[in-house]
Design a protein around this nucleic acid. Sequence first.
DNA 1: CCTATTTTGTGAAGGCTTTCACATAGATAA
DNA 2: TTATCTATGTGAAAGCCTTCACAAAATAGG
Lengths: 222, 222
Amino acid sequence: MDEFRETELKKRISESTIRRLSLYHRALEIVEENGSETVSSKELAKIEKLTPAQVRKDLSFFGSFGTRGLGYPVKDLKAKIARILGIDRVWNIALVGVGNIGSALVSYKEFARQGFKIVKLFDNDQRKIGSNHKGIVVSDIKNIVSELSGSEIEMVVVCVPGSVAQFVVNDIVKAGLRAILNFAPVNLKVPDDVFVRNENMAMELEYLSYALVNNHSKNRVK
Amino acid sequence: MDEFRETELKKRISESTIRRLSLYHRALEIVEENGSETVSSKELAKIEKLTPAQVRKDLSFFGSFGTRGLGYPVKDLKAKIARILGIDRVWNIALVGVGNIGSALVSYKEFARQGFKIVKLFDNDQRKIGSNHKGIVVSDIKNIVSELSGSEIEMVVVCVPGSVAQFVVNDIVKAGLRAILNFAPVNLKVPDDVFVRNENMAMELEYLSYALVNNHSKNRVK
DNA sequence: CCTATTTTGTGAAGGCTTTCACATAGATAA
DNA sequence: TTATCTATGTGAAAGCCTTCACAAAATAGG
């Protein structure tokens, strides 16, 4: 059943491959809505602006899901990718820092749609503690270690200012959690077995700035 | 003056190098606050969890900014990176889709701090059009082409649902803009000379999900 | 001034990722 | 059943990015 689990295959799957699996999953939703039973690597590639060879290579790391001459079975492949990514279940998530971004994420439908359920909120602001966001009462961040330890929560979204993010993360680690989505613009120090993904929105604008200033156009004259 | 402009050097600078320049810039802010006059590649690397060789190699693409035996001049290097990235100026930005995420970004201090100024808002919802967000009145998206054409706005942040994102982007392109930060979970089709960066927050959670499920720990026993 | 020390800048090596190209296998049609 | 067509799966090649390792340059301390 777990024939494509990386730990069992003892193969190193690259980060880019995993990120593209998310894209394939998303593309398969589109194809599924169109009513197709099967889809080719060419079609998947087109939707996400990749190459067919890339699609096939990525999928081949996890098994042979397609049929030669026909393509991949849409429903089945989608389920298999969901299983690989671990999104064939609900993940309970805590969010720390109910500011602008934080409270926007509480209502962010794309999280819910993918099975990411924000079930607990923390803040250090007395005016926010006890207040209600989409049915969730904001807890005092002072109690974060005890409230997360042994709870059903396995991921934390950090939306606090950069100056306090490391302290918050220390507590999250202390509580035994191992997955953090960080919106603070700092590099968090965590033990090797804790996973951190950084969401740095200003950095993306900086990239656009660079591209414009350097006229870094893909089809510019040489 | 422009000795490090990519177009003049005719060198291809990788995307990862540019993203790391943002990190170096951020690290230099920290070092500057600490009052240091100079900083070594080793110190910069430590702050952003990179290698000293990586830092030196990245910077070397743009020139020789350091002094052997001493390191890099903090203030000066920071200014030079800002220049390379094009963030030594203010960028005027329009934001389309004043929903949860959109309105959070209007107040997002990290954008403002880096010189990214949201100066115009668009939405298609009659209840939102005319309303005021942080001093900006929401415009009708119907007028987006005429209002952006020839304006001082050079970047657009797209926070509309995936189902309408492509239509919005078509209008942005029609208005002659070439830089888009896209929060919609779709792959946008744009001409080759238009730059799109995708911010896919659910994808980051999916990566965390994968990491947890596959016990993909950095220091696991082989 | 000389020596020891520090740290840059950079070719070259190594490693990783993507693309190529084709054998293979199943689908389709007559 | 046989021929033709289509699209996968995958070694090998190519390309790209990171790390290594060291000469060179500047400092610091006698």
